[in-house]
Write a protein that binds this DNA or RNA. Structure first.
Length: 523
RNA sequence: GGCCCGUUCGUCUAAGGGUUAGGACACCACCCUUUCACGGUGGUGAUACGAGUUCGAAUCUCGUACGGGCUACCA
């Protein structure tokens, strides 16, 4: 399907008369990974582009998997990334509550309606009975039997049991679940905004549980009910949901009407080195997978996030946006405003994308290079302070940042790249100096010290001129003493121009460092 | 196994049937730089395979292969 005609058709068929409303609906079970943040991003960009609302809904219907702190953590991640919702459990909104655990009663009513209309039924099978069914029906051809239209006839449910027995079981508070009754022979199809026409045969879809024995809904019921009640117009989610979409479509048909159903878009997966990125492998890839660091409250295990690794939020959303989307030009660096302006769901790729950490680093480096020193100042200051370095003068810090930012891939690189501005080097790269050290150089630096001591114009270009004059007078090539001078001030073969460094650390400190290094070189 | 989705340089991707298949990351070389970077120039490198439709296919159709996802009282 061609992207442009497609977009035009959407415009005609779905005049934007309804206000655009989209949602991100995570379950608070742990760290928020790359794919999750990208889903947030695409939701956010789409909503802002169409002057709509972005809603955060917490899908906490699985009490067994609930993790304390995970909800607050999700808020923190969205705040850091600059993708804050318009409505959420925290700030509220017209369509609350936004936590599914607080909406339990609502789902029960819809489940009851489905039963009344014959689209769902009570199932009394115990977990042990289900396990036995899977074991008994397992064959080579069918390694994982489902609770489907053929199997349900052999199980204990309100379809197979006499009505009065069902009544009796219910009256006795027997544990039960409510399952959808999938039609035996129906083709369910829909038009996905990214992949076009997709269809399924209901005969091969199982009777999914809608309401669990603890009274909580499963995702399948909750997503449909809440998307309707919260007036969601476009539903974006990961491709892993595609196989259960027929269940959701049928529920829409039975409950609220297909005309009111949101437009679906199933986003391609972000792959790690071995398939789908997994939260559980968070630490094993050699690169972060979570937006921010996450500590598992049970094991105490810490997984470092992009933020703590030293990524700028601007770079993070930029690289995520480009993982599966592009604007058709060769532009790769986008601000958030540009993304809002240019994003379109039709240009999202349908194929999965393998995450490339090298490219991610490039994006971050680009963003660091483009930022003004003043913008990076507080981050760098916090970094240095955290390492015990007192930063007293913002003007000098800004000069330092401007000098070293081209050399920093991560925010955290600012430490190694600028520590010598604050502290005399503790170690010298002696291999770069000693083999070629001689008396002439020794004499040169002795004279340089005398010259510097009398110097009243401590500007980089003056220092450079003086340096070269003394070299010439001593019949030394400046190049032969420039590297030793750098090692004296920095400790290693890296960093901005030496005279810029000397200017910033000042006359006194420069002379001290030369003297100190001279001892190390000759010792 | 079944169902669904996908497949252009190693990676992310462009290319509305007609291009020497373009860009970016990474890699290599050179230039700039008396350090390291930045920057600049150039290079290696791809339409999975097979049929069909067409004057002409990366592009449309079918098949095959490969990859991924789903197949829970998880989301």
């Amino acid at each position: 399907m061609l992207p442009y005609p497609c977009a035009i058709i959407h415009l005609y068929l779905q005049p934007m008369s309804k206000k655009v409303r989209v949602r991100f609906a995570p379950s608070p079970t742990g760290g928020l990974h790359l794919g999750g943040v990208r889903t947030v991003l695409y939701n956010y960009l789409f909503a802002k582009k169409h002057h709509g609302d972005f809603i955060l809904r917490i899908e906490d219907t699985d009490q067994a998997r609930y993790v304390a702190g995970a909800e607050q953590y999700i808020f923190d991640c969205l705040k850091w990334a600059g993708l804050e919702p318009d409505e959420s459990p925290k700030q509220g909104g017209e369509y609350g509550p936004y936590r599914q655990s607080e909406r339990k009663e609502i789902y029960r009513q819809y489940a009851a309606q489905l039963i009344k209309d014959g689209h769902a039924y009570y199932a009394f099978d115990t977990p042990e009975e289900l396990e036995k069914m899977r074991e008994d029906f397992k064959t080579e051809q069918n390694p994982s039997p489902q609770y489907d239209h053929s199997v349900r006839q052999k199980m204990r449910n309100s379809l197979t049991l006499p009505a009065d027995e069902v009544k009796k079981l219910l009256a006795a508070n027997t544990r039960y679940v409510i399952r959808i009754r999938m039609p035996e022979n129906e083709i369910v199809s829909f038009s996905d905004m990214i992949r076009g026409e997709v269809s399924f045969d209901t005969a091969v879809v199982d009777d999914k549980v809608l309401l669990k024995a603890d009274g909580m809904p499963t995702y399948h019921l909750a997503v449909v009910v809440d998307d309707h009640l919260m007036k969601i117009t476009h539903a974006f989610r990961g491709e892993e949901w595609l196989p259960s979409t027929p269940v959701h479509i049928l529920l829409w048909k039975y409950l609220f009407g297909l005309n009111n159903m949101p437009q679906w878009a199933h986003l391609p997966l972000i792959l790690g080195p071995n398939g789908k990125l997994s939260k559980r492998d968070g630490a094993k890839y050699g690169f972060p997978v979570f937006a921010m660091s996450w500590t598992d409250p049970k094991t105490g295990e810490l997984t470092e996030g992009f933020k703590e690794k030293g990524f700028l939020p601007e770079a993070f959303i930029n690289l995520l946006a480009l993982l599966g989307w592009n604007d058709g030009t060769e532009q790769e660096i986008f601000t958030k405003d540009e993304l809002i302006e240019k994003f379109s769901i039709e240009r999202v790729h349908s194929g999965g994308a393998k995450f490339d950490y090298e490219k991610a680093k490039w994006f971050n480096h680009e963003w660091i290079k483009r930022k003004e020193a003043g913008y990076l100042r507080s981050e760098v200051k916090d970094l240095m302070t955290g390492k015990g370095i007192a930063v007293t003068d913002d003007n000098i810090l800004d000069k330092i940042i401007a000098l070293v930012k081209d050399r920093c891939t991560f925010l955290t690189d600012f430490y190694d790249q600028s520590i010598f501005f604050f502290r005399s080097p503790e170690q010298y790269d002696l291999n770069a100096v000693k083999p070629k050290w001689n008396d002439a150089k020794q004499l040169f630096f002795a004279e340089l010290i005398r010259n510097f001591e009398l110097n009243n114009d401590w500007a980089a270009h003056t220092l450079e001129n003086n340096f070269k004059e003394i070299a010439a007078a001593n019949h030394i090539k400046p190049g032969d003493v420039l590297l030793p001078f750098r090692i004296m001030l920095v400790g290693g073969k890296f960093g901005p121009g030496v005279f810029d460094i000397a200017e910033i650390i000042g006359k006194e400190e420069t002379i001290i460092r030369i003297k100190k290094a001279l001892e190390a070189f000759t010792g």
